[in-house]
């Protein structure tokens, strides 16, 4: 595995192209760099390529051209590199994707034991402290189907954190939740941001974006239309497309 010396940027993306079958342009010459401890929030209309970009960062989605480098590791044909990147990058999905046949405890334990080679006892301890952190230690022994959506998503966050990732990706983590449960998940995400976790967040929650976003990327049609601080994007957008989008959602 060839690894460049890890620098200031934990994620470097250059000239990323991705077209879906049927000629739909998902990413078009997409490039960005993300600093350590930075919280980047990606906003934009649906179909803009936000999720596709996120999924390219840990190799869930293939791309046609361009480069993705995570913590000095290039994401390429080399399967070992891809595996290594996936160990460093946690991901939270819109549909939770918990393992329904395993208890909450087992859901969070499994990757620690299989991928990080921890003993079951070590894993248990880590899991319990993580469940404590996301506020549901009492649910360790139940199955995901017995939890509310908000609780499931908090377990999913704990599961990703159990790998001690260097970056966390959130793919519309609150979009599938009932309104009264969005708050509890956002609280966990905000706490993570405050702890200094590097985060890339695709969301429609503009309140969250304003509160914790270090940088906002507004994208449309697979390209970055405009990026900048919360202040720049929400209060003084330059591009016509951005202004239009911001006025619609605020």
């Amino acid at each position: 595995m060839k690894r460049k010396s890890p620098g200031e940027f934990i994620i470097e993306v250059e000239g990323l192209y991705k077209t879906f079958p049927g000629g739909i342009r998902a990413l078009h010459d997409f490039a960005t760099r993300i600093r350590r401890r930075e919280v980047v929030v990606i906003i934009g209309p649906s179909g803009a390529g936000k999720s596709t970009f996120l999924r390219c960062l840990n190799g869930l989605e293939d791309f046609e051209r361009g480069t993705v480098t995570v913590d000095g590791i290039p994401l390429d044909e080399n399967k070992e590199n891809r595996l290594e990147i996936r160990k460093e990058v946690g991901m939270v999905f819109q549909s939770f994707n918990l393992f329904p046949h395993l208890t909450v405890l087992e859901n969070v334990n499994l990757a620690q034991v299989l991928v990080r080679n921890k003993s079951k006892q070590e894993a248990n301890e880590t899991t319990m402290s993580l469940l404590e952190k996301v506020g549901i230690p009492e649910k360790a022994r139940v199955y995901p189907s017995q939890l509310s959506g908000g609780q499931q998503q908090r377990v999913a966050i704990a599961r990703a954190l159990a790998m001690v990732p260097k970056v966390m990706l959130f793919d519309e983590a609150t979009s599938a939740l009932d309104p009264e449960m969005i708050g509890e998940v956002l609280e966990v995400m905000k706490a993570l941001a405050r702890e200094g976790m590097t985060m890339v967040v695709v969301t429609h929650e503009m309140g969250f974006a304003r509160e914790v976003g270090d940088r906002i990327i507004f994208m449309d049609e697979g390209m970055i239309v405009e990026e900048g601080s919360v202040e720049q994007i929400f209060s003084r957008p330059q591009e016509e497309r951005t202004k239009q989008f911001i006025s619609q959602i605020l």
Binding site: N58, G59, L60, L83, R86, K87, V89, G90, M91, F93, S95, F96, N97, L98, F99, L110, A111, L114, V115, A156, R159, A160, M163
Partner: peptide, 23 residues
């Protein structure tokens, strides 16, 4: 089996064998 299960396993760094065996 839902594709999301595979994606969750991939994102956690599971090998294909582990994904089949445990999930």
């Amino acid at each position: 089996i839902d594709k999301g299960q595979w994606e969750a396993c991939h994102s956690l760094g599971f090998s294909t064998f582990h994904t089949y065996r445990y999930i």
